[in-house]
Design a protein around this nucleic acid. Structure first.
Lengths: 211, 211
DNA sequence: TTATAGACAGACCGACCAGTCTGTTATGTT
DNA sequence: AACATAACAGACTGGTCGGTCTGTCTATAA
């Protein structure tokens, strides 16, 4: 029996299998981030992960399923690295919002020391490359965006209740605008290979939201 | 002698050669728009253009050079279709700005009747897919963005002089913010396959700029 | 008529693509 | 110990990739 249906039922898998999956997903994340989906061959991914072809297809239905799994994995990574739970529990929701946005911004920069590359938002990259032809990826990306937007909306609502944010703004529309700006800024920064636009976006938002 | 150096010296080419180039570029634009750069094979492009392989390489140095040429061609197409000259000459610069933004927005939707697809901003698509590994494309994209930003900046400055836009806004920073929002909105709309975010962005900007 | 080069044609190349196939080894259950 | 299955291995497939090669056809100028 093969378990590559990729219905996110990671439960019940052996630790060994889980570790292998993680190695593959991690390698795919790095390579997709740098070169994109189509420019990254499966061969390179499994070589980087130290896994044989047959083993890969034992764990994943195919390349597209791997992309979806990588998106799920990245969302979890964000949740812990950016500290989503802490952010939602922040006594100052506005401070939590800045922490979130700064965290998102830092994710767009390559963590490696030395030749720091602006590789953009992993979600946005896959979104633009695969939205038209790969519906499962498109749906997953939309789902993640909705989740982030909901988090931002919650923070805005709470911040308004505390008077930290202009009360006249519609929380949902404003959350969408903020997410849109963040994605736009990562795109611009990637083409310019600097962080200027992201800094500008956050600076703008600070001014715009303040009561 | 082969003329495929792609230094944009289209002058001096025979009408026949110019027509062939245009057919190739047009086909490439359509296919790149729909499926992206890497997912589009050269074979499909030249088949769509009705041109043989050797003839393609007579006119272009390679696939990457074609992408750069397609960007230049698209910029010219925008200039005429959106009506850049008219916009800059508009007696109401604010009205010109809305015309520009609406024009940009309409470019993100597939023109074909029936199954209308949101294929996003052609520039932004290539930007995210090729910025890291294809420097010539990245430079061309950055150049186009700078051009558009400069147009927006000019419109803002003039609109401020006429009192159509809040005078306290920095024209350059605001122009950057607008371009960022537009690109972000095209990305969000492409993943959701609707025009909601673009409408929201323009609505937001109308409120934000008004004095 | 001949020389020259631009424009066009398509067979061909090695490399690589995603995915399949037939195995072997490890692990846990009875 | 015997069995079942999860986990792993890698050779192999047909197809496509971007790009090269050797031409032919056509138009202009000498």
């Amino acid at each position: 029996m093969v378990i590559n249906q990729e219905q996110e039922s990671l439960t019940g898998l052996s630790p060994k299998a889980l570790a292998t999956r993680e190695r593959i997903v991690k390698a795919a994340f790095e390579l997709f981030s740098l070169h994109g989906y189509h420019a990254t061959g499966l061969e390179r991914i499994i070589r980087a992960a130290g896994v044989a072809k047959g083993n890969f297809y034992h764990h994943f239905k195919g390349k597209e399923a791997l992309a979806v799994a990588t998106l799920s994995w990245y969302m979890e990574k964000m949740r812990t690295e950016v500290g989503l739970d802490d952010i939602l529990a922040d006594p100052s929701p506005l401070h939590g919002l800045w922490t979130l946005l700064e965290g998102m911004a830092s994710q767009t920069r390559c963590a490696e020391t030395g030749n720091c590359q602006i590789r953009g938002c992993f979600i946005g990259n896959l979104a633009l490359e695969l939205s038209v032809d790969h519906a499962p990826v498109r749906r997953k990306v939309a789902e993640i965006f909705d989740m982030v937007r909901e988090v931002i909306r919650t923070l805005i609502t709470h911040a308004q209740q505390l008077g930290e944010i202009r009360p006249d703004l519609d929380p949902d529309q404003t959350a969408g605008m903020i997410l849109t700006m963040m994605e736009g800024a990562t795109l611009m920064d990637k083409t310019r290979q600097n962080s200027q636009d992201m800094h500008g976006a956050i600076y703008f938002l600070k001014g715009y939201l303040s009561p």
